[in-house]
Amino acid sequence: MNGLGSYLKKHTEALVKDVGIEPACDLTGKSKATLGRYYSDNEEHADRFMPIDAVAALEKAAKYPHVTSALAEVNGITLSYDPERRNSDENANVNSDVIALSQRFAMLMAEYNQSIEDGIISVNEAKRLLRETSQLQRVLIEMKMHLEEESGERI
């Protein structure tokens, strides 16, 4: 088995163990044996990987997105993980997203105004701006997901 396959299987195993084998079976509709094959390093199972819908179901229940972070890492992508997911309220909709968006943008502009006051943006000020920009991006992603949900399309 190549290094990438082995790496992904180890993270798949971590995901299943994070959720628990019985709950993982319930969430995915797969048997213990099938789940075990997805992370087995035996040569006969080298080409078997967990389907993406099963990964998504398990990562929703897990404490950490093990497989997604592994995929991002091997592709040189950095993810920002926030277990709070403050803007993902079940009752949230586009209207609440617009409110959150305007609030976040106002906070970004206030931070920028304070940072540029002396004409120089320090490293700490840049970090605060980056943090606010990331929060704004998170709200935009949630808004995009709500718009897709309401329109019945994936963009």
Rank of each mutant, 00 (worst) to 15 (best):
E43M: 05
V16D: 01
S134F: 08
E150F: 10
L130N: 14
L129Y: 13
L129A: 09
T12Y: 03
A62N: 05
T78E: 15
M50D: 02
G29L: 11
Q135V: 12
I141S: 01
D89G: 03
E13S: 04
L101S: 00
N87L: 01
L140S: 04
V19K: 03
D53N: 12
Q103C: 02
S69L: 12
A54L: 06
S96L: 05
Y39M: 01
S134H: 10
A106S: 15
M109H: 08
L147A: 09
I121L: 05
E84K: 10
L15A: 03
D82T: 06
V67A: 05
N95F: 14
Y38W: 12
S151F: 00
G36R: 10
E44W: 02
N124D: 14
S122P: 07
H45A: 06
R86F: 05
L136W: 10
A92M: 07
A24V: 05
V55A: 02
N124M: 00
D53Y: 07
D41I: 10
M107G: 11
N95G: 04
N113H: 14
E148M: 09
D82S: 00
K60T: 15
M107R: 12
A56P: 00
I121P: 04
S122N: 05
R154L: 11
T34P: 03
I121W: 08
E13A: 09
I77G: 10
V74Q: 11
L129C: 10
K127Y: 08
F49V: 01
L101V: 01
E111P: 02
V16A: 04
L79A: 10
S40Y: 09
I99P: 02
A126P: 09
V16S: 02
L140I: 13
A110N: 11
D82K: 06
N42K: 13
R86I: 06
A14R: 14
D18S: 06
H146D: 15
E84V: 06
E149H: 15
N124V: 01
K32M: 03
S96T: 15
P65G: 08
R128E: 15
A72M: 07
A54F: 06
V74G: 04
E149R: 14
V123A: 13
E142L: 01
L15K: 05
S88I: 04
E84H: 05
L101C: 02
A57M: 02
T133A: 15
E149Y: 11
E153Y: 12
D26L: 09
N93K: 00
I77V: 15
H146G: 00
Q114S: 13
K127T: 01
A70W: 05
N95V: 13
E90A: 08
E125D: 08
M143H: 12
I155T: 13
I155Y: 14
M145G: 04
E132R: 15
S122Y: 07
P51I: 03
S102F: 08
Q137T: 15
L136K: 08
L108P: 03
L71M: 12
M143I: 07
S102D: 12
